[in-house]
Design a protein around this nucleic acid. Structure first.
Lengths: 337, 337
DNA sequence: GACTGGCACTCCCGGTCCGGGAGTGCCAGA
DNA sequence: TCTGGCACTCCCGGACCGGGAGTGCCAGTC
């Protein structure tokens, strides 16, 4: 595959992304200074089609890239185009105004949607990969306790515990101190193991309550492992007939945490940034969709974020935006650590 | 306006809602046993059109109801059709499995979307209308405090406070006790007033921190009055070409808390249930949309929920669903009180 | 006076037909 | 190996048309 053929492919991808219409040989030879005639381009196009990088919607139409073509473009041709200084400043300012973790996530997802003009998805810092920073017990009524768990990423979970026996304020403080001793700094994944014998280690008076507390904590980190995600920019699905078919399945998928997690999560945790194009997504409804994801977190990855759009997307711009935002969010989490 | 004309209107509304196609005189006289001929129905239709209750998309087409027609239908003709026993059981079961307030809201909004096949919107219990149940201070680092505010509806807000001076554990406890004395049971709206002189009432060592705490609390209840809302069922917008035009503006509106609050909030707080049809909504993009909302809360109203769909909706069913769900959620909040 | 059957009329809708245009593949020549 | 030319293919939009559904009106009946 010679260099000019690659240039032709790049021209086709870029023009198609820009115009959303099949691009013909004449357009390529004129608008991109390749120094060859349309007829020559046609020969190259025949080759590219043979090799599976582009295709014709129908005879005597221009060519459009295939998933394989986009893949080649992303891997070898697309120069990532960094955000403009103004954009970077805006990202900075907007994110640094966040007042808590919820707000960081909300702002991030909006920002991504706005920057890329696509649907953005951000996973809340995963409970599984964070650790316990603090456990707070608050007595609401004599038999009702609220337990608040704060993780090192700033996520807060609260649960109610029905106490089998009435406990006084000092006893609750005792229980709280003990639970914190056991759990502070420990990974959430270890919480069930560490609390398994919580009841056995406290005074008899506290035993029943401790058991109940252990049960609730376990439920919090295990049973409800379902990860939360935030979505924004659904309206962008309507841009220029992104999804020729009905966009119903996509809209439905956007409300299914499970599906979203699958899209985000399948990302190689090692890779800084993952691009899955068209049928590289295993989910059927996303065969015409590209997902660009990046991990984020303070030091280690605690969650993923990404955007989702038609295979026909502006790859250089999108990749740059996702990467920049992921980096900056990581920085913020690092600071709040 | 005689009874038969009303029956004709009902027939038109019901058929149009069912088939989504203009309904003609023959269809009315045949499918609904009115005992009169099509010609007679035509005369009644001419009257109804004159009076503004129905209209013709074009000459020689059937009739469709106008907003005014739907209004009359809702006010005088529609018998609310209660949920089936099976549906009620399902609502009960699904909602009673909720583990915290977030979960209640999430489940509610999904339930509404599923029951009505429309877009559901649920407002989180408004901070403004609830009161402080408990304030918790957690020291994270020597100079960093986390303040957790729990409201009587179970909503939890957390904020960070940078302490101007290092405080010991016992001093934080003292501050916490004092703040709770001041605020427990008080309406959130009163918090700024009550904390205005917090700094003046504590020992000099605590003063700076107390001032900072007061500032953060004020910010929590005032500056961030922006109310949170949950949305579900956006995919239902694609059902049978709900929105002939583009559905873009609707999708955009669904991501704007401000717009959603406007839709939900304009509800008469007194009314148990509000139906706003077509241009009764002041927002331009919702001229073809009906919003059915209900207030909910333990005793008094702390928030609203509702669904949003085309004016051409199943009013009796939708109204029944919204009412039933709002009632049941209120019960749950009552129990957790 | 209210209702009904009949009838002419209007307008939408789907199908067919057709011409222009864009783009291709191929070939002969440089 | 590249290029200009040319015949060919196919989509697309517009024009046209007939069938059908529905209407308004009118004259006749109870």
């Amino acid at each position: 595959m010679d260099d000019r053929k690659l240039e032709v492919l790049r021209a086709i991808v870029e023009d198609y992304v820009a115009t959303q219409e099949p691009v013909g040989s004449k357009a390529v030879s004129q608008r991109h200074a390749l120094g060859v005639s349309a007829a020559t381009v046609r020969n190259d196009m025949a080759y590219l089609e043979e090799a599976g990088y582009i295709q014709q919607p129908h005879t005597s139409a221009g060519r459009i890239p295939t998933a394989k073509g986009y893949r080649l473009f992303v891997d070898r041709l697309g120069k990532i185009k960094p955000l403009s200084a103004a954009e970077r400043r805006a990202v900075h300012r907007f994110l640094s105004e966040a007042i808590d973790l919820d707000d960081v996530v909300t702002r991030t997802v909006r920002l991504l949607a706005q920057l890329t003009h696509q649907v953005a998805v951000v996973q809340y810092p995963s409970l599984n990969r964070s650790s316990v920073r603090h456990l707070e017990l608050v007595s609401l009524t004599p038999t009702r306790l609220m337990v608040v768990m704060i993780t090192d990423t700033g996520r807060v979970e609260q649960r109610y515990v029905e106490m089998p026996a009435e406990l006084g304020e000092s006893e609750i403080l005792e229980l709280r101190r003990f639970a914190n001793e056991q759990l502070q700094g420990k990974a959430l994944a270890d919480v069930p193991r560490l609390t398994a014998d919580l009841a056995g280690q406290v005074r008899p008076e506290l035993r029943d309550t401790a058991a109940e507390l252990a049960r609730v904590l376990k439920e919090t980190v295990v049973a409800r492992t379902e990860e939360r995600v935030a979505v924004a920019g659904a309206a962008n699905l309507t841009r220029g007939n992104f999804f020729a078919g009905s966009m119903r399945p996509i809209l439905e998928a956007l409300e299914e945490e499970v599906v979203l997690m699958q899209l985000l999560g399948r990302a190689d945790s090692n890779a800084l940034l993952t691009v899955r194009i068209g049928d590289e997504n295993e989910i059927d409804d996303f065969r015409e969709t590209t997902v660009v994801t990046a991990g984020y977190g303070p030091g280690s990855v605690v969650g993923h974020m990404g955007v989702l759009g038609p295979t026909r997307m502006d790859y250089p711009g999108t990749i740059a935006a996702v990467r920049a935002v992921a980096r900056y969010v990581s920085e913020i989490l690092e600071q709040n650590r």
